[in-house]
């Protein structure tokens, strides 16, 4: 595991060096072939360039089967080796050990959420260092891509099915999670972090976060849901306009609608907008919010409304 190089980001998982070794092997193989091709090209241009009064170079060969078979078979052997190494490494990094710690990953436009065995859901991925972790991933809307460059780990997250990946993170630290499968407006903002912690710290965080949540007031719960459900991706709480209208001062105000008319943003309107987002869209915004029907329960909706009331 290293700090990264000219070509590669830091290597921070047990699988990363496997990928990096092959990367460098291919790199140097490609380098040799490239120098061979371009070197011969330059050499021939210099050597055989037409010059005034030059002598004939003699008859040039029209073909040479032995030579042509040579430059068919040698590359075939080289790519055969690369194929084998690629497959062997792939099996290594895609076969999880038996005792892996399991975390559920849900991707949605444009947000990751991670659910731990104790039921806690968080917007970042906390994992214990040096322990195998298995992610069971699905999407609620379109295809997303789960990518941690420092782990050399990537897999599509497909709605309607579960895909799994595993990794063993190195030292404590944080690493980017990117979405790599284009998913619309907020695709490039669909970030999260992997937070690698010592196993003790991880357990402390997990218990602490779960107990804080159990004792949270509706406003605190609502603020948490604002982040974990992905509301924050499009709705600001500081008055800034984004993909969706800001929540600041929204509750109780009269909002103009697309297609004319207006509505007072009371409990019923907010509830409808969460469950049936495109029924009444605020003037000037596109009808692109995904529905949360089936994903939030009534107490959650109430908590979100409670939080929204505090955002003035």
């Amino acid at each position: 595991m290293g700090n990264g190089s000219f070509w590669l980001p830091p290597a921070a998982s047990s699988g990363a060096p496997v990928v990096d070794r092959l990367f460098h092997f291919i790199y140097w193989t490609a380098f040799v072939f490239f120098v061979l091709v371009v070197g011969l090209m330059v050499l021939f241009v210099l050597r055989y360039r037409r010059r005034p009064g030059q002598k004939d170079h003699g008859p040039a060969p029209t073909h040479n089967t032995a030579l042509e078979l040579t430059w068919t078979i040698i590359p075939l052997i080289v790519v055969g080796v690369i194929f084998y190494l690629g497959f062997a490494g792939f099996m290594d990094i895609s076969t999880p050990p038996q005792n892996a710690y399991e975390i559920q990953v849900t991707a949605m436009r444009w947000k990751w959420s991670f659910t731990y065995p104790n039921g806690l859901t968080d917007e970042d991925l906390h994992v214990p260092a040096d322990q195998p972790v298995r992610l069971v991933m699905t999407s609620t809307d379109v295809i997303h891509g789960f990518f941690v460059p420092d782990f050399r780990l990537k897999h599509d997250v497909v709605p309607g099915r579960y895909n799994t990946v595993w990794f063993r993170a190195g030292k404590p630290g944080t690493h980017d999670i990117f979405c790599t499968q284009y998913c619309g407006t907020g695709h490039s903002e669909m970030h999260a972090q992997v937070i690698v912690q010592n196993p003790d710290d991880f357990q402390k965080w997990l218990d602490g976060a779960a107990s804080a949540l159990a004792h949270a007031s509706p406003v605190e719960l609502g603020e948490r849901l604002y982040h974990t459900l992905g509301c924050a991706q499009c709705h600001s709480v500081d008055g800034a306009s984004s993909t969706g209208p800001t929540w600041k001062g929204l509750y109780g105000s009269k909002v103009p609608l697309n297609g004319g008319g207006s509505v007072t943003a009371d409990e019923n309107y907010v509830r409808e907008s969460i469950l049936e987002p495109n029924a009444k869209v605020v003037l000037g915004y596109a009808a692109i919010m995904p529905t949360y029907q089936g994903r939030v329960k009534d107490p959650d909706v109430a908590a979100i409304i409670a939080y929204m009331k505090t955002v003035k």
Partner: peptide, 25 residues
């Protein structure tokens, strides 16, 4: 010859399974 050389040879990184996982998309 120069550019297609690079284009073709970098395909090796993407054809190999373990390196493609990192480089895909």
């Amino acid at each position: 010859l120069f550019l297609f050389g690079i284009g073709g040879l970098t395909g090796l990184f993407l054809g190999a399974l373990s390196t493609d996982v990192h480089l895909h998309d």
